[in-house]
Amino acid sequence: MAHYLYQSRIEDPIWLQPDDISFLRTRLSEAEDVIQIIEKRMEELTAHIPELTRQKHAKLVEIVSLRNVLAPVRRVPLEILTEIFELSCLPKYGFRESDLVPDMFMLTSVCAAWRKAAHTTPRLWSRLCISFAKELVPGSDFAWINDWITRCRRVPLDLYIQFDLYILELEDPDNLIMERAAQLLEYILGHFGDIIRLLDISGRPSAFLPILQLPRSSLLSLEELSFEICEAKNDTVKDLVDLFPRKVDVLLGADKLRQVKSTVPHF
Protein backbone atom coordinates (compact mmCIF):
# COMPACT_ATOMS: atom_id res chain seq x y z
CA MET A 1 0.00 0.00 0.00
CA ALA A 2 2.88 2.36 0.73
CA HIS A 3 3.67 2.87 -2.96
CA TYR A 4 0.16 4.36 -3.48
CA LEU A 5 0.93 7.19 -1.06
CA TYR A 6 3.78 8.56 -3.17
CA GLN A 7 2.21 8.34 -6.60
CA SER A 8 1.14 11.62 -8.19
CA ARG A 9 -1.29 9.80 -10.41
CA ILE A 10 -3.23 6.55 -9.83
CA GLU A 11 -4.70 4.95 -12.91
CA ASP A 12 -5.50 1.39 -11.78
CA PRO A 13 -8.11 0.10 -9.29
CA ILE A 14 -6.95 -0.04 -5.67
CA TRP A 15 -7.57 -3.03 -3.43
CA LEU A 16 -7.24 -2.21 0.29
CA GLN A 17 -7.31 -4.41 3.37
CA PRO A 18 -9.28 -3.30 6.46
CA ASP A 19 -6.00 -2.45 8.24
CA ASP A 20 -4.94 -0.34 5.27
CA ILE A 21 -8.19 1.63 5.36
CA SER A 22 -7.82 2.25 9.11
CA PHE A 23 -4.25 3.39 8.65
CA LEU A 24 -5.16 5.82 5.85
CA ARG A 25 -8.05 7.30 7.78
CA THR A 26 -5.75 7.89 10.75
CA ARG A 27 -3.21 9.66 8.47
CA LEU A 28 -6.00 11.73 6.95
CA SER A 29 -7.27 12.85 10.34
CA GLU A 30 -3.75 13.75 11.47
CA ALA A 31 -3.15 15.77 8.29
CA GLU A 32 -6.42 17.68 8.74
CA ASP A 33 -5.46 18.49 12.34
CA VAL A 34 -2.10 19.84 11.20
CA ILE A 35 -3.82 22.02 8.60
CA GLN A 36 -6.04 23.50 11.29
CA ILE A 37 -3.01 24.24 13.49
CA ILE A 38 -1.20 25.91 10.57
CA GLU A 39 -4.23 28.04 9.66
CA LYS A 40 -4.61 29.17 13.25
CA ARG A 41 -0.94 30.14 13.38
CA MET A 42 -1.29 32.02 10.12
CA GLU A 43 -4.25 33.96 11.53
CA GLU A 44 -2.20 34.88 14.60
CA LEU A 45 0.71 36.06 12.44
CA THR A 46 -1.61 37.99 10.12
CA ALA A 47 -2.99 39.88 13.10
CA HIS A 48 0.53 41.13 13.85
CA ILE A 49 1.22 42.37 10.28
CA PRO A 50 -0.27 45.91 10.73
CA GLU A 51 1.75 46.51 13.89
CA LEU A 52 4.93 45.12 12.32
CA THR A 53 4.33 47.25 9.24
CA ARG A 54 3.91 50.34 11.43
CA GLN A 55 7.15 49.56 13.25
CA LYS A 56 8.94 49.08 9.94
CA HIS A 57 7.73 52.42 8.58
CA ALA A 58 8.74 54.16 11.80
CA LYS A 59 12.25 52.76 11.51
CA LEU A 60 12.46 53.75 7.86
CA VAL A 61 11.55 57.31 8.81
CA GLU A 62 14.19 57.21 11.54
CA ILE A 63 16.80 55.96 9.06
CA VAL A 64 15.99 58.76 6.63
CA SER A 65 16.19 61.33 9.44
CA LEU A 66 19.55 60.02 10.66
CA ARG A 67 20.99 59.95 7.14
CA ASN A 68 19.66 63.46 6.63
CA VAL A 69 21.49 64.71 9.72
CA LEU A 70 24.69 62.85 8.78
CA ALA A 71 24.71 64.06 5.14
CA PRO A 72 27.95 66.04 4.51
CA VAL A 73 26.03 68.72 2.60
CA ARG A 74 24.27 69.66 5.86
CA ARG A 75 27.59 70.90 7.20
CA VAL A 76 28.34 73.13 4.23
CA PRO A 77 28.10 76.83 5.21
CA LEU A 78 25.28 78.76 3.56
CA GLU A 79 27.73 81.03 1.73
CA ILE A 80 29.46 78.07 0.07
CA LEU A 81 26.19 76.29 -0.70
CA THR A 82 24.80 79.31 -2.53
CA GLU A 83 28.08 79.71 -4.42
CA ILE A 84 27.67 76.11 -5.60
CA PHE A 85 24.12 76.88 -6.67
CA GLU A 86 25.26 79.89 -8.66
CA LEU A 87 28.11 78.04 -10.37
CA SER A 88 25.91 75.08 -11.23
CA CYS A 89 23.45 77.37 -13.02
CA LEU A 90 25.97 79.28 -15.11
CA PRO A 91 25.20 78.76 -18.82
CA LYS A 92 27.64 76.96 -21.09
CA TYR A 93 26.77 78.79 -24.30
CA GLY A 94 25.64 82.25 -23.18
CA PHE A 95 22.69 83.54 -21.22
CA ARG A 96 20.32 83.68 -24.17
CA GLU A 97 20.56 79.89 -24.51
CA SER A 98 20.59 79.39 -20.75
CA ASP A 99 18.46 76.85 -18.91
CA LEU A 100 18.70 78.98 -15.79
CA VAL A 101 14.98 78.92 -15.02
CA PRO A 102 14.49 75.10 -15.03
CA ASP A 103 17.86 74.63 -13.29
CA MET A 104 16.89 76.95 -10.44
CA PHE A 105 13.47 75.36 -10.06
CA MET A 106 15.13 71.93 -9.95
CA LEU A 107 17.57 73.05 -7.23
CA THR A 108 14.81 74.48 -5.07
CA SER A 109 12.81 71.28 -5.39
CA VAL A 110 15.50 69.02 -3.89
CA CYS A 111 14.63 69.68 -0.25
CA ALA A 112 13.29 72.34 2.10
CA ALA A 113 16.79 73.35 3.24
CA TRP A 114 18.00 73.99 -0.30
CA ARG A 115 14.82 75.87 -1.13
CA LYS A 116 15.21 78.09 1.94
CA ALA A 117 18.90 78.72 1.18
CA ALA A 118 18.12 79.71 -2.41
CA HIS A 119 15.07 81.83 -1.60
CA THR A 120 17.00 83.84 0.99
CA THR A 121 19.92 84.62 -1.36
CA PRO A 122 18.86 87.55 -3.58
CA ARG A 123 21.81 87.38 -5.97
CA LEU A 124 20.71 83.93 -7.17
CA TRP A 125 17.58 85.62 -8.53
CA SER A 126 19.27 88.74 -9.90
CA ARG A 127 19.54 87.18 -13.36
CA LEU A 128 16.52 86.03 -15.35
CA CYS A 129 16.74 84.30 -18.73
CA ILE A 130 13.47 83.81 -20.53
CA SER A 131 13.06 81.82 -23.70
CA PHE A 132 9.55 82.55 -24.90
CA ALA A 133 8.95 79.10 -26.40
CA LYS A 134 10.35 77.27 -23.35
CA GLU A 135 8.99 79.07 -20.33
CA LEU A 136 5.88 80.75 -21.69
CA VAL A 137 2.92 79.52 -23.66
CA PRO A 138 -0.26 81.35 -24.59
CA GLY A 139 -2.68 81.20 -21.69
CA SER A 140 -0.07 80.80 -18.92
CA ASP A 141 0.22 83.46 -16.25
CA PHE A 142 3.26 85.39 -15.07
CA ALA A 143 3.06 84.39 -11.40
CA TRP A 144 6.38 82.55 -11.43
CA ILE A 145 8.09 85.61 -12.97
CA ASN A 146 6.70 87.78 -10.18
CA ASP A 147 7.97 85.29 -7.56
CA TRP A 148 11.39 85.11 -9.23
CA ILE A 149 11.99 88.85 -9.38
CA THR A 150 10.50 89.43 -5.93
CA ARG A 151 13.16 87.08 -4.49
CA CYS A 152 15.96 89.29 -5.82
CA ARG A 153 14.74 91.89 -3.27
CA ARG A 154 15.53 94.97 -5.31
CA VAL A 155 19.02 93.77 -6.24
CA PRO A 156 19.81 95.07 -9.78
CA LEU A 157 18.36 92.63 -12.29
CA ASP A 158 19.98 91.29 -15.47
CA LEU A 159 17.19 90.34 -17.86
CA TYR A 160 17.66 88.21 -20.98
CA ILE A 161 14.66 87.58 -23.20
CA GLN A 162 14.71 85.50 -26.37
CA PHE A 163 11.80 84.87 -28.68
CA ASP A 164 12.90 81.56 -30.21
CA LEU A 165 13.71 81.26 -33.88
CA TYR A 166 10.79 79.04 -34.70
CA ILE A 167 8.62 82.07 -33.89
CA LEU A 168 10.94 84.56 -35.54
CA GLU A 169 11.05 82.64 -38.81
CA LEU A 170 7.30 82.75 -39.28
CA GLU A 171 6.25 85.29 -41.89
CA ASP A 172 2.92 85.84 -40.16
CA PRO A 173 3.24 84.63 -36.55
CA ASP A 174 0.12 83.90 -34.61
CA ASN A 175 -1.34 87.13 -33.20
CA LEU A 176 -1.75 85.40 -29.84
CA ILE A 177 1.97 84.72 -29.70
CA MET A 178 2.91 88.30 -30.49
CA GLU A 179 0.34 89.61 -28.03
CA ARG A 180 1.77 87.29 -25.40
CA ALA A 181 5.24 88.65 -26.08
CA ALA A 182 4.02 92.21 -25.63
CA GLN A 183 2.19 91.27 -22.42
CA LEU A 184 5.34 89.67 -21.05
CA LEU A 185 7.47 92.75 -21.60
CA GLU A 186 4.80 95.10 -20.37
CA TYR A 187 4.37 93.05 -17.19
CA ILE A 188 8.09 92.91 -16.35
CA LEU A 189 8.84 96.50 -17.27
CA GLY A 190 5.73 97.83 -15.58
CA HIS A 191 6.43 96.06 -12.28
CA PHE A 192 10.22 95.81 -12.14
CA GLY A 193 11.62 98.18 -14.78
CA ASP A 194 13.29 100.42 -12.20
CA ILE A 195 15.64 97.62 -10.99
CA ILE A 196 16.76 96.31 -14.41
CA ARG A 197 20.53 96.78 -14.74
CA LEU A 198 21.05 94.85 -17.98
CA LEU A 199 18.48 94.27 -20.69
CA ASP A 200 19.32 91.83 -23.49
CA ILE A 201 16.50 90.98 -25.86
CA SER A 202 16.13 89.39 -29.29
CA GLY A 203 12.96 89.39 -31.34
CA ARG A 204 10.91 90.94 -34.10
CA PRO A 205 11.03 94.76 -34.30
CA SER A 206 7.44 95.03 -33.10
CA ALA A 207 8.36 93.08 -29.95
CA PHE A 208 10.43 96.07 -28.82
CA LEU A 209 7.51 98.49 -28.79
CA PRO A 210 6.66 97.94 -25.09
CA ILE A 211 10.21 99.09 -24.27
CA LEU A 212 10.48 102.00 -26.68
CA GLN A 213 7.11 103.40 -25.65
CA LEU A 214 8.04 103.67 -21.96
CA PRO A 215 8.39 107.10 -20.34
CA ARG A 216 11.88 108.27 -19.48
CA SER A 217 11.58 107.45 -15.78
CA SER A 218 11.04 103.73 -16.37
CA LEU A 219 14.59 102.30 -16.56
CA LEU A 220 16.44 104.31 -13.95
CA SER A 221 18.94 101.52 -13.10
CA LEU A 222 19.70 100.48 -16.70
CA GLU A 223 23.45 100.28 -17.44
CA GLU A 224 23.66 97.91 -20.43
CA LEU A 225 21.26 97.46 -23.32
CA SER A 226 21.49 94.90 -26.13
CA PHE A 227 18.99 94.53 -28.99
CA GLU A 228 19.11 91.75 -31.55
CA ILE A 229 16.41 92.62 -34.03
CA CYS A 230 15.22 89.91 -36.41
CA GLU A 231 13.36 91.48 -39.29
CA ALA A 232 10.45 89.89 -41.13
CA LYS A 233 8.64 90.75 -44.31
CA ASN A 234 6.00 92.83 -42.60
CA ASP A 235 7.97 93.71 -39.48
CA THR A 236 11.11 95.79 -40.09
CA VAL A 237 13.39 98.24 -38.30
CA LYS A 238 12.19 100.97 -40.62
CA ASP A 239 8.72 100.52 -39.18
CA LEU A 240 10.15 101.32 -35.74
CA VAL A 241 12.02 104.34 -37.04
CA ASP A 242 8.83 105.69 -38.55
CA LEU A 243 7.12 105.34 -35.18
CA PHE A 244 9.90 107.23 -33.36
CA PRO A 245 11.16 109.89 -35.81
CA ARG A 246 12.78 112.08 -33.16
CA LYS A 247 13.80 110.27 -29.99
CA VAL A 248 13.09 107.44 -27.59
CA ASP A 249 12.27 108.98 -24.23
CA VAL A 250 12.94 105.86 -22.16
CA LEU A 251 16.66 105.89 -23.06
CA LEU A 252 16.99 109.63 -22.47
CA GLY A 253 15.91 109.04 -18.90
CA ALA A 254 18.40 106.18 -18.28
CA ASP A 255 21.18 108.25 -16.72
CA LYS A 256 23.29 105.20 -15.80
CA LEU A 257 23.27 103.76 -19.32
CA ARG A 258 26.86 103.26 -20.51
CA GLN A 259 26.64 100.58 -23.18
CA VAL A 260 24.18 100.07 -26.04
CA LYS A 261 24.50 97.34 -28.65
CA SER A 262 22.11 96.73 -31.51
CA THR A 263 22.39 94.12 -34.26
CA VAL A 264 20.14 93.15 -37.18
CA PRO A 265 21.14 89.61 -38.29
CA HIS A 266 20.20 88.40 -41.74
CA PHE A 267 18.89 84.86 -42.22
Rank of each mutant, 00 (worst) to 15 (best):
L70P: 04
E39N: 13
L52Y: 07
L16A: 10
L66I: 15
A31F: 10
A31T: 15
I38N: 12
V61W: 01
T46K: 15
A71N: 13
E97G: 11
L24T: 01
P77V: 07
L100N: 01
M104I: 05
V61S: 04
I38M: 13
V101E: 04
E79V: 00
M104E: 01
E83N: 07
L78I: 13
I63D: 09
K92F: 11
F105Q: 09
R67T: 09
G94F: 06
T108W: 03
E86A: 11
E62V: 04
I49H: 04
R96A: 08
E51D: 12
E97P: 03
R27D: 05
Y6K: 13
F23D: 07
T46S: 08
R74T: 14
S22E: 15
H57V: 07
A47R: 13
F23Y: 05
H57W: 05
C89R: 00
L90R: 09
P50K: 02
R115S: 09
E97A: 13
L16Q: 07
C89S: 03
H3S: 08
P50Y: 02
I38H: 10
D19Y: 08
E39C: 11
D99A: 06
E43W: 06
I10Y: 09
P72L: 01
C89P: 01
E83P: 01
L70A: 13
T53C: 05
S22M: 08
Y6E: 10
P102E: 02
V73D: 02
D20L: 01
L52K: 05
E11G: 07
L87M: 12
L60C: 11
P18T: 10
I21T: 14
F85E: 00
M104T: 01
H57I: 07
D20C: 02
P18H: 03
Q36N: 13
V73C: 02
E51K: 15
R41C: 06
T26Q: 12
L87W: 12
S109M: 10
D20N: 02
P50F: 02
Q7N: 10
R67Y: 14
E39R: 09
R67M: 06
F95G: 05
D33A: 10
R75I: 06
L66C: 03
Q7K: 12
V110N: 00
H3G: 06
S29I: 08
T26L: 15
D33E: 09
F95T: 05
I38R: 14
C89G: 02
L28G: 11
D12T: 10
V61N: 04
V110D: 00
P50G: 01
V101D: 01
E62G: 05
V61D: 11
K59V: 12
A47M: 07
P18S: 07
L24D: 00
Y6N: 08
R9P: 02
Q7H: 11
I63R: 13
A117Q: 00
N68W: 07
I21W: 06
V69C: 03
R41W: 06
T108V: 04
